[in-house]
Design a protein around this nucleic acid. Structure first.
Lengths: 104, 104
DNA sequence: TTGACATGCAACCATTTGGTTGCCTATTGT
DNA sequence: ACAATAGGCAACCAAATGGTTGCATGTCAA
């Protein structure tokens, strides 16, 4: 779980996920196109995404194909974000009131 | 948006959000209790959460009260996670098939 | 079979990050 | 008034991060 959050913390990595979301199964070189980064930098980012299980790869000849795995993202939605969404309605309305209570 | 992801990337900070979710409006010292960290370290984490707009603070005498703001978390759920949830059903089923297509 | 292409590996570098310590300021209770 | 309490500020530090360059390896196509 921590690895997923860490992986998502970087904008370049999120944009790689976006690219795979737009077209799944791209090679390393395809994913490098148009990025202001060396291939090796992209490799490192993809390795981090792979270790967080956000991306799965398959070797196909001399190419490496990258596939998006949306499951961990979904889990963060379920296990983490939903918990705080319940608080959403209560929070801001209560805010002032709780503060004023302390003033008595 | 990037600031929110960065803020959520650290486990200590997520646990601070958890604590505020359990009981809103805690002081700095309250939030420090039981943590294996100095007060100043916690201050820094809270500053990052505040800058990401995940936490709002109010001065009340010599105390500083911290309130959870669940809105940015909710936005990540809406704007980011949902997008990938649609891919979830398709992805893993397609995975092998797409790979095999390339073999022709 | 050999050159071009796709990727891998490793060393190196600057900056950011997460933490510390030491000291200062402001508020409060007695 | 003054000691204790709550918090702020700044310098410093080690380790992690995001990137680079240089070279090695494996695979394909002519």
């Amino acid at each position: 779980m921590d690895e997923v959050f860490k992986a998502l913390a970087d904008a370049s990595r999120r944009s790689l996920l976006d690219r795979l979301h737009a077209r799944n199964g791209q090679t390393l070189n395809e994913l490098c196109e148009g990025l202001a980064m060396t291939r090796q930098a992209v490799t490192k980012h993809l390795a981090i995404l792979e270790q967080a299980n956000l991306v799965t790869t398959f070797k196909h000849g001399r190419e490496k194909l990258h596939y998006l795995n949306p499951v961990p993202i979904h889990q963060i939605g379920e296990r983490w974000i939903r918990k705080f969404e319940r608080a959403k309605l209560v929070a801001l309305g209560e805010l002032k009131r709780q503060l004023e209570e302390r003033d008595e």
